[in-house]
Design a protein around this nucleic acid. Structure first.
Lengths: 347, 347
DNA sequence: ATTAGCACTCGTCTTACGTGAGTGCTAACA
DNA sequence: TGTTAGCACTCACGTAAGACGAGTGCTAAT
């Protein structure tokens, strides 16, 4: 059904179409890729491939373009992942500024690096904070009746929020309370704190209201599922590709990218999977019918942190994108390791 | 030279062109705006206005479009600032989520609100931290040899960064040091701390290295002039306007908006000024020749915080933009007041 | 099974032309 | 003297027609 030669021809078509974005004709194929076959032979094979559903003709007298099925076959069985040149890897490394020590900033540097290296659009989902482990809680008075609550975990400051405090509570007492919480809950997962904290408050019979507020802040941090913190890089890179020469389509896509909620949902589907490739219609989002998404998870000390991805035209340079993501995955782990201290293993 | 009637005609032309983006003809003008004048009369006047440099003709047999000079005249002397409807103001108010208490998030909500209300692109420059007053310093150990330094000012957490500490320094001592710094420098402007801190370290004859690092962090925060924290909203709104139907031009503009450095420079020019309007070429940025920029400063408790602005086509609806910015200025002050506690006056 | 040859298809580019909005000029009018 | 009606002229835009050429499918020869 799909013999060796058909596969070779199909691969050549996909490769060429990825390169040029133009329908590929039999003559071109014979000249550029397979001199030993005549165009007529290739025509026959192409005709077969079309019947099998791997190729499509925009119109009768044009060359063929790969169908989604062809891309699926391509990424599953035909493509060979590329390698980045040394200097390209070095350039990516350089984007992690040694002076930044906050995860958010490191991730956003990574997002930019991906976008620059691929000329597509990148997305990064920051880690779910539920698995973070508490390192320190501190409350700092900011007025007579309010204080700034700062929650520090093994991966940096997670949240700072204003809480109401009993009028005139001295800084000293706030610190003691903070210390109390810190000592009791240090090393616990944020997720568990939401339940442990109320228990603790009950036991102590004091400041239930304040503890409640702290609890609420943690809760809100955990349920921040709106993709508000999604990092997108190079959104306008999409405009550089001919599939978005049509302004209306370009606008539709860009506004989809701007409203990060749907993107977040999309990335969430691949959560935890080492690598996924979704091609066009497989994503079930009308505006992204002509896009593909390549995702990869990133880790720290063997622990899954979050997802990153590249969005580009279906006619995406998959080998290169995979190579870039792979490089980022490695360099990101190093950068995060440096910026957050030792791995978050023990308690 | 510019009599009453010429001004009325010019104003009608600008108004209509802002509305339709199409060259305005004498007949249209006579029908829609000034029924008492015939098209021929208007033609004569338009001819004069063209000679004076206020109008231009895309080609011989088209209507006239306003020149930059005309827009300048329009914003300086002719336009009357609009008013937002009650429900529009309410909608803006709604975007400030009562649950967010961090300046950065409030500002980014404001950026979104501006973009949504105007359908143009918004930019906000967050406050320079140099004028912030120190409220609290805290160092939290994150490993044997490193600690997280958190600097809190009257406007929230300004900076958290990792610093090296002498091996094995106990949390208790870190806290005492933090307390020492807090007590000495509370209420000082961040700008001054860079000089006060070394003095303090010298006096105490201890931990000069650690103090030096804290100092460095503050310094870096102060010299963060790269616009990295610039907030941009609705960048793709630009695509909705016909002047960017040309993809190349659209791409050039969008990438200018994405590289925030130049935007930052631009906004910086108007620093502190209540309101400025820059029209097209007045900005001296080639990619933005067809854009205008309206800026407004925002304040808190009478103190200048930063700048916000709207970028749109030269053919921008200036009255509405000014009205929106004015509304944001007011509501933003309220939102910031709520989120940061009492005004940052005393020491 | 492969290939050369050939008629055919059909999108794209070019050219030509009609249409209509808008102008400038002139002459008449108040 | 300012205003207006009339008219010839200009020129972007849209449509239609034709040339071109890349590519196909089919047939017949190898």
């Amino acid at each position: 059904m799909l013999d060796e030669r058909k596969i070779r021809i199909l691969q050549a078509i996909v490769d060429d179409y990825i390169l040029t974005a133009m329908p590929v004709g039999s003559r071109t194929l014979s000249r550029k890729y397979m001199k030993e076959l005549s165009s007529a032979t290739i025509r026959n094979e192409m005709s077969d491939l079309e019947e099998l559903g791997y190729l499509a003709q925009p119109h009768t007298s044009a060359g063929r373009i790969p169908s989604y099925l062809a891309y699926r076959l391509y990424v599953d069985r035909m493509m060979q992942v590329g390698h980045l040149r040394k200097d390209e890897v070095q350039q990516i490394r350089n984007t992690y500024d040694a002076r930044i020590h906050q995860m958010q900033e490191t991730l956003s540097a990574a997002a930019r690096a991906i976008a620059d290296s691929t000329n597509y659009t990148s997305v990064i989902v920051p880690p779910e904070s539920s698995g973070f482990r508490l390192r320190h809680v501190e409350m700092v008075p900011v007025s007579e009746s309010s204080a700034l609550l700062i929650i520090v975990t093994d991966l940096g400051v997670v949240k700072d929020a204003v809480v109401r405090i009993p009028d005139g509570m001295p800084a000293e007492q706030l610190h003691m309370l903070s210390q109390l919480i810190t000592e009791h809950l240090q090393g616990c997962r944020l997720e568990d704190i939401a339940t442990l904290l109320p228990d603790m408050a009950r036991e102590l019979h004091m400041h239930q209201e304040l503890f409640g507020q702290v609890c609420e802040v943690v809760q809100r941090q955990l349920h921040r599922e709106d993709g508000a913190s999604l990092l997108v890089g190079g959104a306008t890179n999409m405009l550089a590709h001919p599939e978005y020469a049509d302004l209306d389509r370009a606008r539709a896509l860009l506004s989809t990218l701007e409203s990060k909620d749907r993107l977040y949902q999309l990335l969430q589907r691949s959560r935890g999977l080492q690598m996924t490739i979704s091609i066009g219609p497989e994503m079930d989002i009308p505006e992204m019918r002509d896009c593909s998404l390549v995702t990869m998870s990133y880790t720290l000390g063997g622990q899954d942190l979050g997802m990153m991805g590249v969005i580009g035209p279906v006619r995406m340079n998959y080998p290169r994108v995979v190579a870039v993501l792979d490089t980022i995955r490695t360099t990101l782990a190093q950068a995060l390791g440096e910026s957050t201290g030792p791995p978050p293993a023990e308690g």
